[in-house]
Design a protein around this nucleic acid. Structure first.
Length: 575
RNA sequence: CGGGGCGUAGCGUAGUGGCUAGCGCGCCUGCUUUGGGAGCAGGAGACCGGGAGUUCGAAUCUCCCCGCCCCGACCA
């Protein structure tokens, strides 16, 4: 029995000044967590019970799926991370430390190496596969910017799984098993989520999907087609365009265009000069970038910005990507800021990539590579060539769905899970092979799957709260029933106590507000803030033989007779 | 790392050169109160983020450092 009279808990009447997002604000106010440093939090009793409930659901679903739980240290030696070059590649996000002998250690940001090495140490035959193992472990990443309370911390708990298979078909099967286990897990956690296709990015795999919990304060942006269900991270959104069907344009011509530094001013000048009515979408923007020290130009329609995230995710192998700065222009005197066009790219020594919208045969108004001059009828395939198409332009709400052409919507979400097919990268680097039927060594293929366990607590809070407090799903709540003794009469406290014992005897977890010195108003406010789903009030109606039953999420109140209270409460909860 | 904001008691805050740093919540003692964050009386609790400087005098002005929050870049 949890008693409010002795609980290590102090709810706050005011919102903490340093919390903005709802989950952070409410978890602090309701006494679930306290900040220790940026992105590092302590859990108080109510919070830790909630956290452990989430962990329990995750663990049960992993076990149900037949995955085996293991546990690695958080404190790890440098060596395994050298084999995959991540000691270097991970950069400043890695927490590094030295032992007394001066040897390098790290706090694990993720554990691919350790899992791979564990399997390598034990198994060596195809007969041992497939295998899926997981752990629930604290991870450390020295984030450049921790934010939103426990949504993005520098210390956080992640459930990470890895699958090991002999071939691609096996990997696909393991991937699907994880996908199904994740769907069950998030459903049990009461989370609304979308499964979106994602870029596997730096991890170097192939197929990858993210589980996103929609929420306005989320930090991931994704597109969703409400008709066919297509969903993708903005980085992974595919642009669908038709081939050019217009007429072949006349030869390109250069015209004077002084004082047109912006697309708008250019459009205005062209329209009045030629007596036509084009829009920004008919102009071609040449955005210059430095990619690992190489100058590249990205072509996008003038009415769109370049999305650096998308470019980065879609340009294979590029580490450092940034916009051109004045000193870069100085190195390429042929590039006239504001008047760049793709016609002379080869001469100027830059590599040109184009957004898929710049289809072959289409013609554009673009810079003439001379101050105060633009050109029109500049035609792709005739007047300029590109090295490759790359998804580069920003995604806008209303863009056509790549599968059914319906305008998509853009929404924000918290990433709560990520599954992907890693392939053989780690197994190769660490030498994980097994012998096949023919006695030949085969490199194992792996999948990697993560759930942010501590983050899920915050994600649930984000999706399930109102102005006055938290509203937990039953399975996650720190207790299932909150019994409030509201009054001063001894009989009220006695009955509340008895009722609590009876409910517990029926298998329910109960938080009893048995504080003698708190007024009913305080107890009601606290109960609403704490957010246990069912609230039972033992108070003034006790003398009429009644207690009150409330459902936090509905704000509903009904009275039950005291002698049938336990049965009625249980019936109401299980209804 | 770029831009913005902030740091005064456990929490929320007032105080912009003047002597004793104020208020509300919370906490302690006593009395009264008990269905929507009770009342009265008394009390504890602050190296005003740290350091250096300017000044007769600094929470207040200057410089440096530290910490925290938000936007961006980057990332689960």
């Amino acid at each position: 029995m949890l008693r409010m009279s002795t609980l290590l808990l102090r709810t706050l009447r005011d919102d903490p000044a340093d919390a903005e997002v709802a989950s952070h604000r409410l978890l602090v106010r309701a006494g679930y967590v306290r900040r220790v440093a940026a992105g590092i939090y302590s859990w108080l009793p109510l919070g830790y019970r909630t956290y452990r409930n989430v962990e329990k659901v995750v663990r049960e679903e992993m076990d149900n799926a037949g995955f085996q739980e293991v546990h690695f240290p958080a404190l790890l030696p440098r060596d395994p991370y050298e084999s995959t070059n991540r000691w270097t590649e991970y950069g400043p996000d890695l927490f590094r430390l030295k032992d007394r002998k001066g040897n390098d250690y790290l706090l694990g940001p993720t554990h691919e190496e350790m899992f791979t090495l564990m399997v390598k140490g034990e198994f060596s035959s195809y007969k041992d596969l497939p295998l899926s193992i997981y752990q629930i472990q604290t991870k450390y990443r020295d984030e450049p910017r921790p934010r939103s309370g426990i949504i993005r911390g520098r210390e956080f708990v992640m459930k990470d799984s890895y699958s090991f298979d002999i071939d691609d078909a096996g990997l696909e099967a393991s991937y699907q098993r994880h996908r199904e286990a994740y769907i069950k897990t998030f459903n049990r956690l009461g989370l609304k989520f979308n499964i979106v296709s994602a870029m596997s990015g730096a991890m170097g795999g192939s197929k990858s999907e993210e589980f996103l919990a929609p929420c306005p304060t989320g930090e991931d942006t994704y597109v969703l087609c409400e008709k066919c269900g297509y969903a993708a991270n903005v980085e992974a959104m595919v642009t669908k365009v038709d081939a050019y069907k217009g007429e072949v344009p006349p030869a390109f011509e250069i015209f004077d265009s002084p004082n047109t530094p912006t697309i708008d001013s250019l459009v205005e000048l062209v329209n009045s000069k030629f007596g036509i009515s084009i829009t920004g979408a008919d102009t071609l923007k040449n955005v210059l970038l430095m990619a690992d020290g190489k100058a590249i130009s990205i072509l996008v329609p003038g009415d769109r910005e370049v999305d650096l995230k998308r470019v980065g995710a879609n340009l294979a192998g590029v580490q450092d990507l940034r916009l051109f700065e004045d000193e870069d222009f100085a190195k390429y005197p042929g590039l006239v800021k504001g008047y760049v066009g793709p016609q002379d790219a080869a001469k100027l020594g830059i590599t040109v990539y184009a957004d898929p919208r710049i289809v072959i045969g289409s013609h554009w108004i673009t810079g003439a590579n001379e101050r105060d001059k633009h050109a029109r009828y500049v035609t792709h395939g005739r007047d300029f060539e590109v090295t490759a198409f790359v998804e580069a332009a920003e995604v806008k709400a209303g863009d056509p769905c790549p599968t059914c052409q319906t305008p998509v919507v853009i929404d924000r979400a918290i990433e709560i899970g990520h599954i992907f097919q890693l392939g053989r990268k780690y197994a190769q680097a660490l030498g994980l092979t097994v012998l096949d039927q023919n006695g030949k060594a085969q490199v194992v293929t792996m999948g990697s799957y993560g759930i942010g366990v501590s983050r899920a607590v915050a994600a649930i809070a984000e999706q399930s709260h109102d102005e006055i407090g938290l509203i937990w799903p039953r399975e996650i709540a720190p207790a299932e029933v909150h019994v409030v003794a509201a009054g001063k009469d001894e009989s009220i406290f006695n009955f509340a106590e008895q009722l609590t014992e009876q409910l517990e005897a029926m298998g329910l977890t109960v938080l009893l507000d048995d504080r003698k010195d708190a007024s009913p108003g305080v107890k009601f406010k606290d109960a609403e803030l704490i957010g246990i789903p069912y609230i039972v009030i033992v108070g003034k109606s006790l003398q009429e033989g009644k207690i009150e039953f409330r459902v936090r999420s509905l704000g509903s109140k009904v009275e039950f007779a005291t002698d049938s209270a336990v049965a009625e409460i249980i019936a109401a909860i299980n209804n």
